[in-house]
Amino acid sequence: MILRSAGALILAASLAGCAAPNLSSAEDAGLTREERLTYGFSGARVHTENAAHSLIGRDVTAEELSAALERAADEYMVWTGGDRPAIVSIDIEAVNIISAGQTMLVGGVSALQGTVSMTDAETGVQIGDAVTIITRGDGYAPGGLLGVVTMRETPLEVDALAEQFVRQARRVLLGG
Protein backbone atom coordinates (compact mmCIF):
# COMPACT_ATOMS: atom_id res chain seq x y z
CA MET A 1 0.00 0.00 0.00
CA ILE A 2 2.73 2.48 0.98
CA LEU A 3 4.77 1.44 -2.08
CA ARG A 4 1.81 2.09 -4.38
CA SER A 5 1.21 5.49 -2.80
CA ALA A 6 4.86 6.46 -3.21
CA GLY A 7 4.78 5.27 -6.83
CA ALA A 8 1.66 7.32 -7.51
CA LEU A 9 3.28 10.44 -6.04
CA ILE A 10 6.41 9.96 -8.14
CA LEU A 11 4.30 9.48 -11.29
CA ALA A 12 2.23 12.58 -10.50
CA ALA A 13 5.36 14.66 -9.92
CA SER A 14 6.92 13.49 -13.19
CA LEU A 15 3.73 14.27 -15.14
CA ALA A 16 3.65 17.76 -13.66
CA GLY A 17 7.00 18.41 -15.34
CA CYS A 18 5.67 17.39 -18.76
CA ALA A 19 3.68 20.56 -19.32
CA ALA A 20 3.31 21.82 -22.86
CA PRO A 21 5.17 25.08 -23.48
CA ASN A 22 3.17 28.30 -23.78
CA LEU A 23 3.58 28.87 -27.50
CA SER A 24 1.59 30.84 -30.00
CA SER A 25 0.32 29.19 -33.16
CA ALA A 26 2.65 31.35 -35.26
CA GLU A 27 6.06 31.73 -33.66
CA ASP A 28 7.48 33.65 -36.61
CA ALA A 29 4.71 36.27 -36.69
CA GLY A 30 5.38 39.78 -35.52
CA LEU A 31 6.46 43.20 -36.55
CA THR A 32 9.16 43.70 -39.12
CA ARG A 33 12.28 45.59 -38.11
CA GLU A 34 10.94 48.66 -39.90
CA GLU A 35 7.60 48.43 -38.06
CA ARG A 36 9.38 48.04 -34.69
CA LEU A 37 11.24 51.29 -35.42
CA THR A 38 8.06 53.05 -36.61
CA TYR A 39 5.40 52.09 -34.07
CA GLY A 40 5.01 52.28 -30.32
CA PHE A 41 2.22 51.01 -28.09
CA SER A 42 1.18 51.02 -24.47
CA GLY A 43 -1.55 48.82 -23.04
CA ALA A 44 -4.19 47.03 -25.07
CA ARG A 45 -7.87 46.99 -25.86
CA VAL A 46 -9.27 43.84 -24.32
CA HIS A 47 -12.41 42.01 -25.46
CA THR A 48 -13.63 39.03 -23.43
CA GLU A 49 -17.39 39.20 -23.85
CA ASN A 50 -17.48 36.42 -26.48
CA ALA A 51 -15.13 34.03 -24.68
CA ALA A 52 -16.41 30.48 -24.43
CA HIS A 53 -16.09 29.15 -20.90
CA SER A 54 -15.44 25.49 -20.21
CA LEU A 55 -18.40 23.65 -18.74
CA ILE A 56 -16.15 21.87 -16.25
CA GLY A 57 -13.92 24.79 -15.27
CA ARG A 58 -14.30 27.30 -12.47
CA ASP A 59 -16.49 30.32 -13.12
CA VAL A 60 -14.79 33.55 -14.06
CA THR A 61 -16.72 36.56 -15.33
CA ALA A 62 -15.83 38.50 -18.45
CA GLU A 63 -15.22 41.53 -16.21
CA GLU A 64 -12.75 39.64 -13.98
CA LEU A 65 -10.90 38.29 -16.99
CA SER A 66 -10.84 41.71 -18.70
CA ALA A 67 -9.52 43.39 -15.57
CA ALA A 68 -6.71 40.84 -15.21
CA LEU A 69 -5.73 41.18 -18.88
CA GLU A 70 -5.82 44.99 -18.72
CA ARG A 71 -3.57 45.02 -15.62
CA ALA A 72 -1.12 42.71 -17.37
CA ALA A 73 -1.25 44.75 -20.60
CA ASP A 74 -0.58 47.98 -18.71
CA GLU A 75 2.55 46.40 -17.25
CA TYR A 76 3.90 44.26 -20.11
CA MET A 77 2.35 45.48 -23.37
CA VAL A 78 4.65 48.48 -23.80
CA TRP A 79 6.90 49.26 -26.74
CA THR A 80 8.54 52.63 -27.34
CA GLY A 81 10.56 51.71 -30.43
CA GLY A 82 8.83 54.25 -32.66
CA ASP A 83 6.92 57.50 -32.48
CA ARG A 84 3.81 56.46 -34.43
CA PRO A 85 1.07 55.18 -32.10
CA ALA A 86 -0.40 51.73 -32.59
CA ILE A 87 -3.31 50.00 -30.87
CA VAL A 88 -2.98 46.41 -29.68
CA SER A 89 -6.23 44.43 -29.46
CA ILE A 90 -6.68 41.25 -27.47
CA ASP A 91 -9.77 39.16 -28.25
CA ILE A 92 -10.23 36.20 -25.92
CA GLU A 93 -12.00 33.23 -27.48
CA ALA A 94 -11.89 30.57 -24.77
CA VAL A 95 -11.03 30.20 -21.10
CA ASN A 96 -10.81 27.21 -18.78
CA ILE A 97 -9.82 27.61 -15.14
CA ILE A 98 -9.34 24.06 -13.92
CA SER A 99 -11.81 23.03 -11.22
CA ALA A 100 -11.27 20.99 -8.06
CA GLY A 101 -13.53 18.25 -9.43
CA GLN A 102 -11.55 17.91 -12.63
CA THR A 103 -8.30 18.05 -10.71
CA MET A 104 -9.47 15.39 -8.27
CA LEU A 105 -10.59 13.01 -11.03
CA VAL A 106 -8.01 13.35 -13.79
CA GLY A 107 -5.91 16.48 -13.33
CA GLY A 108 -5.57 18.97 -16.14
CA VAL A 109 -4.50 22.46 -17.01
CA SER A 110 -5.98 25.95 -17.00
CA ALA A 111 -5.90 27.58 -20.43
CA LEU A 112 -6.60 30.86 -22.19
CA GLN A 113 -6.96 31.23 -25.98
CA GLY A 114 -7.35 34.37 -28.03
CA THR A 115 -6.09 36.49 -30.88
CA VAL A 116 -3.85 39.53 -30.81
CA SER A 117 -3.79 42.15 -33.53
CA MET A 118 -2.35 45.60 -33.98
CA THR A 119 -3.63 48.60 -35.92
CA ASP A 120 -2.17 51.96 -36.84
CA ALA A 121 -3.85 54.44 -34.48
CA GLU A 122 -3.90 57.20 -37.10
CA THR A 123 -5.15 55.28 -40.15
CA GLY A 124 -6.95 52.30 -38.58
CA VAL A 125 -5.10 49.94 -40.92
CA GLN A 126 -4.19 46.57 -39.43
CA ILE A 127 -0.45 45.99 -39.10
CA GLY A 128 0.43 42.40 -39.93
CA ASP A 129 -1.82 39.42 -39.30
CA ALA A 130 -3.82 38.62 -36.20
CA VAL A 131 -2.12 35.84 -34.25
CA THR A 132 -3.76 33.12 -32.16
CA ILE A 133 -2.16 32.59 -28.76
CA ILE A 134 -2.80 29.81 -26.25
CA THR A 135 -1.38 29.86 -22.75
CA ARG A 136 -1.60 26.86 -20.46
CA GLY A 137 -1.10 28.11 -16.94
CA ASP A 138 1.70 26.62 -14.91
CA GLY A 139 1.45 23.27 -16.64
CA TYR A 140 -0.36 20.04 -15.89
CA ALA A 141 -1.94 19.76 -12.45
CA PRO A 142 -1.76 16.18 -11.20
CA GLY A 143 -4.99 14.37 -10.42
CA GLY A 144 -6.08 13.35 -6.96
CA LEU A 145 -5.86 15.01 -3.60
CA LEU A 146 -2.35 16.37 -4.24
CA GLY A 147 -3.61 18.31 -7.25
CA VAL A 148 -6.57 19.74 -5.34
CA VAL A 149 -4.42 20.80 -2.39
CA THR A 150 -1.96 22.64 -4.65
CA MET A 151 -4.59 24.54 -6.68
CA ARG A 152 -4.44 28.34 -6.67
CA GLU A 153 -7.43 30.46 -5.79
CA THR A 154 -9.39 31.56 -8.87
CA PRO A 155 -8.24 35.23 -8.90
CA LEU A 156 -4.59 34.19 -8.65
CA GLU A 157 -4.99 31.64 -11.45
CA VAL A 158 -6.72 34.20 -13.69
CA ASP A 159 -4.01 36.79 -13.01
CA ALA A 160 -1.26 34.27 -13.82
CA LEU A 161 -2.95 33.22 -17.07
CA ALA A 162 -3.51 36.85 -18.08
CA GLU A 163 0.13 37.73 -17.44
CA GLN A 164 1.35 34.73 -19.42
CA PHE A 165 -0.98 35.56 -22.31
CA VAL A 166 0.07 39.21 -22.52
CA ARG A 167 3.77 38.42 -22.22
CA GLN A 168 3.47 35.85 -25.01
CA ALA A 169 1.51 38.34 -27.14
CA ARG A 170 4.27 40.93 -26.71
CA ARG A 171 6.93 38.38 -27.71
CA VAL A 172 4.93 37.45 -30.80
CA LEU A 173 4.35 41.07 -31.84
CA LEU A 174 7.98 42.01 -31.40
CA GLY A 175 9.22 38.81 -33.06
CA GLY A 176 11.15 37.48 -30.10
Rank of each mutant, 00 (worst) to 15 (best):
L3W: 13
D120T: 03
L23V: 13
H53P: 02
L69K: 03
G107Q: 05
G175T: 03
G139V: 00
T119M: 10
E153P: 02
P85F: 09
V116S: 04
Q102A: 12
R45A: 15
Y140L: 12
G128L: 09
G144W: 05
L65R: 01
A29R: 02
S110P: 04
V125T: 11
N96L: 09
A94K: 14
E35N: 07
I92N: 00
D120E: 07
V131S: 05
G139E: 05
S42R: 14
D28C: 09
T48S: 10
M104P: 05
A20T: 11
P21F: 01
I10N: 06
A16F: 10
S25T: 15
I97P: 07
I133G: 06
A141P: 02
L65H: 02
W79S: 10
W79H: 15
R171P: 07
L173P: 05
A51W: 00
F41E: 01
A12T: 03
W79F: 10
T135Y: 07
E27D: 14
T103G: 05
N50Q: 15
A94V: 07
G43F: 06
A100C: 08
L65I: 03
S5W: 08
A16M: 13
A20G: 04
T154Y: 09
Q164G: 13
L174Y: 03
Q102S: 14
A19K: 01
I134R: 15
L69V: 01
A86P: 02
D59V: 10
V125A: 12
E122D: 14
P155W: 01
G114Y: 08
N96E: 12
Q168S: 13
A141V: 15
A100I: 07
G114N: 08
T48M: 06
A12Q: 12
T48P: 04
L37M: 12
Q164T: 11
A13S: 12
T119W: 03
G175W: 01
I134L: 14
T38Y: 03
G107I: 05
S110T: 03
A12F: 05
A19C: 00
R170F: 03
L105Q: 13
S89Y: 10
M77C: 09
A16I: 10
I98Q: 10
I98C: 09
D159G: 08
I10D: 10
D159Y: 05
H47L: 14
E34Y: 01
G81K: 03
I98A: 06
S99E: 06
D120V: 04
D59F: 11
V60M: 01
L146K: 05
V172L: 04
